[in-house]
Amino acid sequence: MNMDYLQYVESDSYLNKLDPRTKFVFFVVMAIVTSVVKSLVALIFLGLFLLVIWITSKITKEMLTLLNKLKVLLIFILLLWLVLGIFEEPPVAGGPVFVRTDIGKIHICFDWYDIYKGLVYSLRIYLMIASFFMVLITTNFSEIILGLCRWHIPYSVAFAIGLVFQIIPIVIHELQEIMEAQSSRGLEIEQCSWLVKIKNYMIFSIPLLFRVIEKAQAISLAMHYYKLDFSSKRTSYKTIKATRSDLFFALASAAAVVITLVLLHFFYIPV
Protein backbone atom coordinates (compact mmCIF):
# COMPACT_ATOMS: atom_id res chain seq x y z
CA MET A 1 0.00 0.00 0.00
CA ASN A 2 2.28 2.77 -1.22
CA MET A 3 0.75 6.16 -0.46
CA ASP A 4 3.86 8.28 -0.98
CA TYR A 5 2.12 10.06 -3.85
CA LEU A 6 -0.03 11.92 -1.28
CA GLN A 7 3.01 13.70 0.13
CA TYR A 8 4.51 17.11 -0.56
CA VAL A 9 6.94 17.11 -3.48
CA GLU A 10 9.99 19.24 -2.78
CA SER A 11 10.73 21.29 -5.88
CA ASP A 12 11.59 24.75 -7.09
CA SER A 13 8.59 24.83 -9.40
CA TYR A 14 6.32 27.74 -10.18
CA LEU A 15 3.47 26.32 -8.07
CA ASN A 16 5.81 25.57 -5.15
CA LYS A 17 6.92 29.20 -5.04
CA LEU A 18 3.42 30.66 -4.91
CA ASP A 19 1.96 32.15 -1.74
CA PRO A 20 -0.05 29.34 -0.08
CA ARG A 21 -3.04 31.69 0.17
CA THR A 22 -3.11 32.02 -3.62
CA LYS A 23 -3.21 28.24 -3.89
CA PHE A 24 -5.96 27.93 -1.25
CA VAL A 25 -8.13 30.42 -3.18
CA PHE A 26 -7.36 28.60 -6.43
CA PHE A 27 -8.56 25.33 -4.94
CA VAL A 28 -11.78 26.88 -3.60
CA VAL A 29 -12.54 28.49 -6.98
CA MET A 30 -11.81 25.24 -8.82
CA ALA A 31 -14.03 23.29 -6.43
CA ILE A 32 -16.92 25.70 -7.14
CA VAL A 33 -16.33 25.74 -10.92
CA THR A 34 -16.16 21.94 -11.21
CA SER A 35 -19.32 21.69 -9.10
CA VAL A 36 -21.18 24.07 -11.41
CA VAL A 37 -19.82 23.29 -14.88
CA LYS A 38 -21.50 20.31 -16.55
CA SER A 39 -20.34 20.87 -20.11
CA LEU A 40 -17.84 18.40 -21.50
CA VAL A 41 -16.28 21.02 -23.78
CA ALA A 42 -15.86 23.48 -20.89
CA LEU A 43 -14.45 20.74 -18.66
CA ILE A 44 -11.99 19.66 -21.35
CA PHE A 45 -10.80 23.27 -21.62
CA LEU A 46 -10.42 23.45 -17.84
CA GLY A 47 -8.52 20.16 -17.93
CA LEU A 48 -6.18 21.55 -20.60
CA PHE A 49 -5.60 24.67 -18.50
CA LEU A 50 -4.64 22.49 -15.52
CA LEU A 51 -2.42 20.39 -17.77
CA VAL A 52 -0.48 23.51 -18.75
CA ILE A 53 0.04 24.30 -15.05
CA TRP A 54 1.20 20.74 -14.36
CA ILE A 55 3.67 20.81 -17.23
CA THR A 56 4.96 24.25 -16.22
CA SER A 57 5.36 23.09 -12.62
CA LYS A 58 6.78 19.68 -13.56
CA ILE A 59 4.18 17.71 -11.63
CA THR A 60 2.65 15.86 -14.60
CA LYS A 61 4.09 12.56 -13.33
CA GLU A 62 2.40 12.99 -9.94
CA MET A 63 -0.92 13.93 -11.59
CA LEU A 64 -0.77 10.85 -13.81
CA THR A 65 -0.06 8.76 -10.70
CA LEU A 66 -3.17 10.29 -9.14
CA LEU A 67 -5.16 9.45 -12.28
CA ASN A 68 -3.88 5.89 -12.07
CA LYS A 69 -4.90 5.62 -8.40
CA LEU A 70 -8.33 7.06 -9.17
CA LYS A 71 -8.97 5.05 -12.30
CA VAL A 72 -11.17 2.48 -10.56
CA LEU A 73 -13.34 5.22 -9.07
CA LEU A 74 -13.56 7.12 -12.35
CA ILE A 75 -14.44 4.00 -14.34
CA PHE A 76 -17.04 3.12 -11.72
CA ILE A 77 -18.64 6.57 -12.08
CA LEU A 78 -18.62 6.24 -15.87
CA LEU A 79 -20.20 2.78 -15.74
CA LEU A 80 -22.74 3.88 -13.15
CA TRP A 81 -24.06 6.59 -15.48
CA LEU A 82 -24.01 4.18 -18.40
CA VAL A 83 -26.15 1.72 -16.45
CA LEU A 84 -28.54 4.39 -15.14
CA GLY A 85 -28.93 5.94 -18.61
CA ILE A 86 -29.43 2.70 -20.47
CA PHE A 87 -33.10 2.54 -19.43
CA GLU A 88 -33.94 6.02 -20.77
CA GLU A 89 -34.18 7.67 -24.15
CA PRO A 90 -31.72 10.61 -24.56
CA PRO A 91 -33.34 13.88 -23.48
CA VAL A 92 -31.53 15.66 -26.29
CA ALA A 93 -32.51 14.91 -29.87
CA GLY A 94 -29.92 13.79 -32.40
CA GLY A 95 -26.69 11.84 -31.91
CA PRO A 96 -26.02 8.16 -32.42
CA VAL A 97 -27.94 5.40 -30.66
CA PHE A 98 -25.91 2.20 -30.38
CA VAL A 99 -28.55 -0.20 -29.07
CA ARG A 100 -32.32 0.30 -28.80
CA THR A 101 -34.44 -2.69 -27.88
CA ASP A 102 -37.07 -4.02 -25.50
CA ILE A 103 -36.50 -6.97 -23.22
CA GLY A 104 -39.99 -7.88 -22.08
CA LYS A 105 -41.42 -4.72 -20.59
CA ILE A 106 -37.97 -3.17 -20.09
CA HIS A 107 -36.90 -0.58 -22.68
CA ILE A 108 -33.17 -0.46 -23.36
CA CYS A 109 -31.48 2.47 -25.10
CA PHE A 110 -27.69 2.70 -25.13
CA ASP A 111 -26.80 5.97 -26.80
CA TRP A 112 -24.16 8.78 -26.99
CA TYR A 113 -25.81 10.70 -24.16
CA ASP A 114 -25.11 7.93 -21.64
CA ILE A 115 -21.38 8.08 -22.49
CA TYR A 116 -21.43 11.90 -22.47
CA LYS A 117 -23.00 12.04 -19.03
CA GLY A 118 -20.58 9.44 -17.62
CA LEU A 119 -17.59 11.33 -19.02
CA VAL A 120 -18.85 14.66 -17.61
CA TYR A 121 -19.23 13.27 -14.10
CA SER A 122 -15.92 11.39 -14.16
CA LEU A 123 -14.07 14.46 -15.44
CA ARG A 124 -15.64 16.74 -12.83
CA ILE A 125 -14.62 14.43 -10.02
CA TYR A 126 -11.08 14.08 -11.35
CA LEU A 127 -10.57 17.82 -11.88
CA MET A 128 -11.91 18.62 -8.43
CA ILE A 129 -9.60 16.09 -6.74
CA ALA A 130 -6.69 17.11 -9.00
CA SER A 131 -6.97 20.78 -8.05
CA PHE A 132 -6.83 19.83 -4.35
CA PHE A 133 -3.95 17.46 -5.04
CA MET A 134 -2.01 20.21 -6.86
CA VAL A 135 -2.16 22.35 -3.74
CA LEU A 136 -1.35 19.40 -1.45
CA ILE A 137 1.82 18.30 -3.23
CA THR A 138 3.20 21.83 -3.76
CA THR A 139 2.53 23.31 -0.29
CA ASN A 140 4.35 22.00 2.75
CA PHE A 141 2.64 22.02 6.14
CA SER A 142 4.74 24.89 7.48
CA GLU A 143 3.46 27.04 4.61
CA ILE A 144 -0.10 25.86 5.24
CA ILE A 145 0.17 27.03 8.86
CA LEU A 146 1.70 30.37 7.82
CA GLY A 147 -0.97 30.90 5.17
CA LEU A 148 -3.83 30.15 7.56
CA CYS A 149 -2.34 32.40 10.24
CA ARG A 150 -2.12 35.29 7.77
CA TRP A 151 -5.87 34.88 7.30
CA HIS A 152 -6.23 35.41 11.06
CA ILE A 153 -7.20 31.83 11.70
CA PRO A 154 -6.19 31.08 15.33
CA TYR A 155 -2.74 29.50 15.60
CA SER A 156 -4.18 26.53 17.51
CA VAL A 157 -6.42 25.68 14.53
CA ALA A 158 -3.70 26.31 11.94
CA PHE A 159 -1.20 24.23 13.96
CA ALA A 160 -3.71 21.37 14.28
CA ILE A 161 -4.29 21.36 10.51
CA GLY A 162 -0.54 21.49 9.84
CA LEU A 163 0.00 18.67 12.34
CA VAL A 164 -2.49 16.47 10.49
CA PHE A 165 -0.45 16.90 7.30
CA GLN A 166 2.71 16.10 9.27
CA ILE A 167 1.26 13.03 10.96
CA ILE A 168 -0.60 11.38 8.08
CA PRO A 169 2.59 10.20 6.32
CA ILE A 170 3.96 8.97 9.66
CA VAL A 171 0.83 6.89 10.34
CA ILE A 172 0.86 5.50 6.80
CA HIS A 173 4.52 4.56 7.26
CA GLU A 174 3.78 2.91 10.61
CA LEU A 175 0.94 0.85 9.08
CA GLN A 176 3.23 -0.31 6.28
CA GLU A 177 5.90 -1.32 8.80
CA ILE A 178 3.40 -3.21 10.95
CA MET A 179 2.01 -5.09 7.95
CA GLU A 180 5.50 -6.06 6.88
CA ALA A 181 6.56 -7.05 10.41
CA GLN A 182 3.52 -9.26 11.02
CA SER A 183 3.63 -10.94 7.62
CA SER A 184 7.33 -11.59 8.20
CA ARG A 185 6.33 -13.58 11.31
CA GLY A 186 3.97 -15.74 9.28
CA LEU A 187 0.71 -13.81 9.07
CA GLU A 188 -0.75 -14.46 5.62
CA ILE A 189 -2.14 -11.39 3.90
CA GLU A 190 -1.30 -12.11 0.29
CA GLN A 191 -2.35 -15.60 -0.77
CA CYS A 192 -5.58 -16.03 1.18
CA SER A 193 -9.32 -15.41 0.85
CA TRP A 194 -10.80 -11.97 1.42
CA LEU A 195 -12.45 -13.20 4.61
CA VAL A 196 -9.12 -14.37 6.06
CA LYS A 197 -7.47 -11.19 4.81
CA ILE A 198 -10.01 -8.99 6.64
CA LYS A 199 -9.62 -11.09 9.80
CA ASN A 200 -5.84 -10.85 9.62
CA TYR A 201 -6.01 -7.11 9.05
CA MET A 202 -7.39 -6.89 12.60
CA ILE A 203 -3.95 -7.98 13.79
CA PHE A 204 -2.52 -4.76 12.39
CA SER A 205 -4.99 -2.60 14.22
CA ILE A 206 -3.70 -3.30 17.75
CA PRO A 207 -0.03 -2.37 17.17
CA LEU A 208 -1.15 0.57 15.01
CA LEU A 209 -3.41 1.82 17.78
CA PHE A 210 -0.56 1.63 20.30
CA ARG A 211 1.86 3.29 17.90
CA VAL A 212 -0.56 6.14 17.25
CA ILE A 213 -1.10 6.61 21.00
CA GLU A 214 2.67 6.56 21.55
CA LYS A 215 3.18 9.11 18.77
CA ALA A 216 0.48 11.33 20.24
CA GLN A 217 2.15 11.13 23.67
CA ALA A 218 5.57 11.89 22.17
CA ILE A 219 4.19 14.89 20.27
CA SER A 220 2.45 16.17 23.36
CA LEU A 221 5.76 15.90 25.29
CA ALA A 222 7.59 17.70 22.50
CA MET A 223 5.01 20.51 22.52
CA HIS A 224 5.79 20.91 26.21
CA TYR A 225 9.57 20.88 25.61
CA TYR A 226 9.14 23.60 22.98
CA LYS A 227 6.93 25.68 25.26
CA LEU A 228 3.96 25.69 22.92
CA ASP A 229 1.21 27.63 24.66
CA PHE A 230 -1.72 28.72 22.50
CA SER A 231 -2.66 31.41 25.00
CA SER A 232 0.70 33.20 24.60
CA LYS A 233 1.64 35.49 21.77
CA ARG A 234 4.21 33.91 19.51
CA THR A 235 6.48 35.39 16.90
CA SER A 236 7.28 34.09 13.44
CA TYR A 237 10.71 33.60 11.90
CA LYS A 238 9.40 33.39 8.35
CA THR A 239 6.81 35.52 6.64
CA ILE A 240 4.96 34.98 3.40
CA LYS A 241 4.30 37.60 0.80
CA ALA A 242 2.37 37.53 -2.46
CA THR A 243 4.53 38.35 -5.48
CA ARG A 244 3.99 39.14 -9.16
CA SER A 245 3.90 35.41 -9.81
CA ASP A 246 0.83 35.18 -7.59
CA LEU A 247 -0.79 38.03 -9.47
CA PHE A 248 -0.04 36.41 -12.82
CA PHE A 249 -1.34 33.05 -11.61
CA ALA A 250 -4.52 34.65 -10.26
CA LEU A 251 -5.13 36.50 -13.54
CA ALA A 252 -4.49 33.40 -15.64
CA SER A 253 -6.83 31.36 -13.44
CA ALA A 254 -9.50 34.06 -13.59
CA ALA A 255 -9.23 34.16 -17.40
CA ALA A 256 -9.50 30.37 -17.55
CA VAL A 257 -12.61 30.43 -15.35
CA VAL A 258 -14.22 33.09 -17.56
CA ILE A 259 -13.49 31.09 -20.72
CA THR A 260 -14.83 27.94 -19.04
CA LEU A 261 -18.08 29.76 -18.18
CA VAL A 262 -18.35 31.10 -21.74
CA LEU A 263 -17.86 27.60 -23.14
CA LEU A 264 -20.43 26.35 -20.66
CA HIS A 265 -22.88 28.89 -22.04
CA PHE A 266 -22.33 27.92 -25.68
CA PHE A 267 -21.87 24.17 -25.33
CA TYR A 268 -24.25 23.29 -22.55
CA ILE A 269 -26.15 20.06 -22.80
CA PRO A 270 -28.37 19.40 -19.78
CA VAL A 271 -27.14 16.45 -17.75
Partner: peptide, 11 residues
Protein backbone atom coordinates in the same frame (compact mmCIF):
# COMPACT_ATOMS: atom_id res chain seq x y z
CA UNK B 1 10.86 12.62 14.13
CA UNK B 2 8.51 13.00 17.08
CA UNK B 3 9.75 16.42 18.05
CA UNK B 4 10.66 18.26 14.89
CA UNK B 5 7.76 20.56 14.13
CA UNK B 6 8.09 22.17 10.75
CA UNK B 7 8.76 21.05 7.22
CA UNK B 8 12.18 22.62 6.71
CA UNK B 9 15.25 22.61 8.95
CA UNK B 10 14.92 26.35 9.66
CA UNK B 11 11.20 25.95 10.48
Amino acid sequence: ENQLFGYGVED
